[in-house]
């Protein structure tokens, strides 16, 4: 279902809602496109005219600093006009419905909505039912998906490891509440790594997590063996309700990544974290700032991935709208 709504009849991207249902070829195309955008970020004038005259609206129903600012930078580097709407403080508090607000924005000739929402499926709902002629990019919906974060992680892995073949990758921490983990697992499996593991206490793992195509570990000592890539997740304190953990100190002792635990993985293993980091909760400072950490590469790659996804979706959506207009004439 998601794959159909995301693609044009010729298989080009027109919305980017989820990694699931997208082929390895398309994910690779996103990575390749992003790779060529990295060079733009190294120029004197970090701007190309690809989306000149297009309007991108950042619709953040949930607070976010990094994701919103990298989406904004990405759109600006593509020369688009960017409107940032902090919805929690605007229209919806006056009683306007989501549909009404979006239709108003569409009437202002918006070409793309970047949507972050606490409800799973929000971006999909907008693409399907509210404003199907606006390209929708999912910037995180509930516990469901955060596909651009997953793709920037894939780009970081490919840059450091060359390819996905034979890699053993573990995602450590709060899998239960993590849309990032869900998107990463799908992307890693589609791109063909050898093994995806999840490492967490049982209280932070979904019951049926194996059906996503992962191996479940509850002990770091077992799960970290022979790893090429370690992805640490943030302990989402705001989502910790109902005594899922005894204490942060206890969590750090058992699941926090420090030098001693890192030594159990392969010597050339890379350490990733989607940010923001809770130092001393899920990761120690010497690991986060150490030679195996690629956390800041992830941030840089985030801009390139978002440029790639935005330009591809805009191109596909424009093609769709053009052919629809021609059919009407």
């Amino acid at each position: 279902m998601e794959s159909e709504i995301q693609l044009t009849p010729s298989g080009r991207l027109k919305h980017f809602l989820s990694v699931s249902g997208l082929s390895r070829a398309l994910l690779t195309e996103i990575l390749d496109t992003a790779e060529s955008f990295i060079e733009v970020g190294e120029r004197n004038i970090r701007k190309v005219p690809l989306l000149r005259g297009k309007t991108v609206v950042n619709l953040f129903f949930e607070p976010s600093t990094r994701t919103r600012s990298t989406f904004e930078l990405a759109a600006k580097r593509l020369s688009a006009d960017v409107l940032n709407l902090d919805i929690s403080t605007s229209a919806t508090s006056k009683g306007e419905s989501l549909s009404d607000m979006l239709e108003n924005l569409e009437a202002m000739a918006s070409d793309m909505f970047v949507v972050r929402h606490s409800q799973s499926g929000a971006a999909h709902f907008i693409a399907e039912s509210v404003t199907p002629n606006v390209a929708i990019v999912n910037a995180g919906d509930g516990w469901h998906a955060h596909p651009t974060q997953a793709m920037l992680d894939m780009l970081t892995i490919r840059q450091h490891k060359g390819s996905f073949e034979g890699l053993k990758v573990a995602i450590v921490g709060d899998i239960l509440h993590s849309r990032v983990a869900r998107s990463q697992i799908r992307a890693l499996n589609t791109l063909g790594v050898a093994e995806v593991r999840v490492i967490a206490p049982n209280t932070l793992l979904p019951n049926d997590v194996e059906c996503l195509g992962v191996k479940r570990f509850t002990q770091m000592e077992d799960g970290l063996k022979d790893l090429d890539v370690i992805i640490m997740l943030r302990l989402q304190k705001e989502r910790m309700q109902g005594g899922l953990l005894p204490s942060e100190q206890e969590y750090y002792r058992l699941y926090g990544l420090n030098q001693q635990k890192l030594a159990m993985a392969k010597p050339d293993a890379i350490v990733m974290h989607p940010g923001p980091i809770n130092r001393g909760v899920e990761i120690s400072s010497d690991v986060a700032d150490g030679p195996q950490s690629v956390i800041l590469n992830q941030v840089t790659n985030g801009i390139a991935i978002r440029m790639a996804v935005m330009s591809m979706a805009m191109s596909g959506q424009t093609e769709t709208n053009t052919s629809r207009k021609e059919a009407l004439e």
Binding site: R12, E29, D32, T33, E35, S36, F37, I38, E39, V40, V48, P49, L50, A308, S311, M312, M314, S315, G316, T318, E319, T322
Partner: peptide
């Protein structure tokens, strides 16, 4: 120089990501 990002017809023909970046 790779002009993919400067074309005036990219919404029609799409991007060609495999080409190498400008250097």
């Amino acid at each position: 120089i790779n002009i993919s990002f400067y074309r005036d017809d990219f919404t029609r023909v799409g991007l060609h990501p495999q080409v190498s970046p400008s250097n």
